[in-house]
Design a protein around this nucleic acid. Sequence first.
DNA 1: ATAATACTTGACAAAAACAGTAGGGTTTTA
DNA 2: TAAAACCCTACTGTTTTTGTCAAGTATTAT
Lengths: 159, 159
Amino acid sequence: MLRLSTKGQYGVRAMYEIARGYPETPVTIKEISERQDVSVAYLEQILNKLRKAGLIKSIRGPGGGYVLNRSADKISIASILNELEGPVALTSCLDPEGGCVRIDSCVTHLLWKALGEQVEAFLKTITLKNLMAGDFYALGGMAKKEMRRSIRLKPQSQP
Amino acid sequence: MLRLSTKGQYGVRAMYEIARGYPETPVTIKEISERQDVSVAYLEQILNKLRKAGLIKSIRGPGGGYVLNRSADKISIASILNELEGPVALTSCLDPEGGCVRIDSCVTHLLWKALGEQVEAFLKTITLKNLMAGDFYALGGMAKKEMRRSIRLKPQSQP
DNA sequence: ATAATACTTGACAAAAACAGTAGGGTTTTA
DNA sequence: TAAAACCCTACTGTTTTTGTCAAGTATTAT
């Protein structure tokens, strides 16, 4: 259940590649395509959305490519996925402006809403920079320690 | 993003109806259908899965219907959704026995895994009983207080 | 200038997943 | 023994997903 679309997945991976070139080197679609094994044409669609959303900017012509529009620690995973897949809305009655018809079943309504908020909060705490450092943990979620165990993280530098 | 299928949603709502009759009164498909506005035929599919999974049992013949197989505080939302939608697997490479091919992209791999675990943990802490009482909160997630604010819960009984 | 590089855009199509219907059972009890 | 109620499989229409294709436009090195 709850599968993420390939657009969302590829989008994050593409942003990761672009972030690696930041701020010196523009990264071309072709490079992303080769490194992440996604077709150029498909990436074009994805990067177009991310560009319109202001997350990246493009430089045309020879030597061009894509560059982050702001630093990697200012770009959350949530902001990437929101552009590519829309907001987290586990049920149609949680769609933006979607007036829930059956208020009597509000019990489950609140449940899905709470879960959605939990997911969103999690994704907001994780930035591209965290992703690159392999150093991400849930702020609103599990305890740091538990998280680190659960995802088998390399330990952070000790004082 | 991350939409829940109607099967999952209806399943939880159906379980909620069945729980309301527990332990005295078997609840018929027809009753669930009317109260939750879902077709009988569709509910049959859903309840069939839940029965095979051992979450409910059925009583045939006149006066029959469905009954919880164990008490409402022993049935988590996670267990219901797992039967109807399969395990939380945000990406195909997190499918059970799905060997992830591209280990180099393991950075995102761990991210999706962590998110999935977060969701699963959340859903495991909430039981049908919690749902019926309108009294659910995230164990692994937000602080109780914050949660209550965020989902605009009716306050619990005061001592 | 102009060729090469690289991004831009919109239309379209195959495939998978989803949502639900149809129609024929079987079992139990009043 | 008939009615109530569950049981099971197949099928189908729709939507979403996952891309491809083709024809651009903009920029820069030479």
